[in-house]
Design a protein around this nucleic acid. Structure first.
Lengths: 225, 225
DNA sequence: AATTCAGCTAACAATTTTGTAAGATACACA
DNA sequence: TGTGTATCTTACAAAATTGTTAGCTGAATT
């Protein structure tokens, strides 16, 4: 099931960041900047969930929450600029379903959205799980890789390696950790087997036109910067 | 990273339910029922996160939160029996990191725990992603299956099939949907190929001593009830 | 600059995975 | 109950994955 999410947020940078990430996570995202009549856009688009900033020009988020509640039980997730406890209580009393304070990480936002959707709709066909970094999308459902619209099939070893490295992007992952993650302690594999598997993974990236995704840190391990 | 979580909750059923689920989600769980000295157990175990019920015998959750705060900055997630806004504000003022009201879904609890851990510890090595149903655990990271402590390796097709069926447990998934999920439209595969792959998956369950996990609904598809 | 060692690459064989064919069952409906 | 169709099972060959070996490359250290 494809959920449609409406974002009401006046800070353009945040608005665009949210929309971009929602799309990335396979939601249908749309934003409104018609702050004098949010309800109009809501009724026109009928989203499955509303992300509502509290600080808005003209009327505030609480006002629009009330307006929406008059016509719909759609789940509403409030976004607050400051970590204000009164806001949080207010938001909940208003009929808000959850509350997130800026600054927030996209992972937390997505987790909250998924949790709220799961609670509000009886849906079992969960969102596609993905891991994204620099335009490279790892699909956890199918174990495939998407690089500028090309779908690349990964073997199980390749998938496991990339999964670990992408989860830890920005940090060096030691060869030892990778070895222990892919092969049980009991099972003895040659140290070079890891190198070969990294090599195979890199070749797939190269064949898709991506040069240096996985970097070697000699003596330390590998990193996706 | 393996996080240790301490649960302080007087309702035995809830306490055990939480502990069981924490373990399932790869946390190290321990509970205390020493309500006259929660701090003692806290100091002995040094957990990474505390789940603290507000209504407790002898002293309440707020008291223990203060006691813990005197010695530690460990993240504390409050559990409230009633959806009481004052409790929520109080909890936050006390130095609580998050707040969840009963009844809560395990998914939400886990999401909140993960979000809090992510905020509190600079860890990028996220929790293992799993899908669980009736004691059968599908590890999304490694593409393996865990059936009463046995680890069973799945091939890529077997993993994809099981993943879809487990995501949709309780619902019938049509053969057509499975076919389209596993094989691109362009790629023509025999209709029986799906049957064979289901058969192979079932054999792995049987070899682990599980009889009827995937049921056939003739003319409709397959279902994990 | 020479040396050393960590990591890279290519080639090979063993193993596993995969799709298909062919015949066997079992269910649904007349 | 009989018939047709959907699903199951087994066996087989093709294809992909995997671990190892052996030799190569390139960075770090002296």
């Amino acid at each position: 099931m494809q959920f449609k999410i409406m974002t009401v947020e006046d800070d353009r940078a945040i608005r665009e960041m949210i929309a971009e990430n929602l799309t990335k996570w396979q939601f249908e995202a749309f934003t409104t900047t018609n702050f004098s009549n949010v309800l109009e856009d809501f009724l026109a688009e009928k989203p499955h969930l509303v992300l509502l900033d509290i600080n808005l020009p003209i009327y505030d988020g609480f006002y629009w929450c009330q307006k929406i509640r008059e016509v719909s039980k759609v789940p509403i997730l409030f976004i607050s600029s400051r970590n204000n406890n009164m806001d949080m209580v207010m938001a909940m009393n208003m009929g808000g379903d959850d509350f997130i304070s800026k600054p927030f990480s996209i992972e937390v936002l997505i987790a909250k959205i998924n949790a709220t959707l799961r609670r509000s709709y009886d849906y079992v066909d969960l969102q596609t799980d993905i891991l994204e970094h620099q335009g490279i999308i790892l699909n956890l459902d199918s174990g495939t890789l998407k690089i500028n619209e090309q779908i690349i099939d990964l073997s199980k070893n390749e998938y496991k390696l990339l999964h670990i490295l992408m989860k830890n992007h920005g940090k060096i992952v030691s060869r030892d950790k990778l070895l222990r993650s892919l092969w049980d302690d009991e099972r003895f594999v040659d140290d070079n087997t890891l190198t070969v598997n990294i090599n195979r993974l890199r070749k797939k990236f190269e064949s898709a036109g991506v040069g240096h995704f996985i970097e070697t840190k000699i003596g330390q391990g590998y990193i996706i910067p």
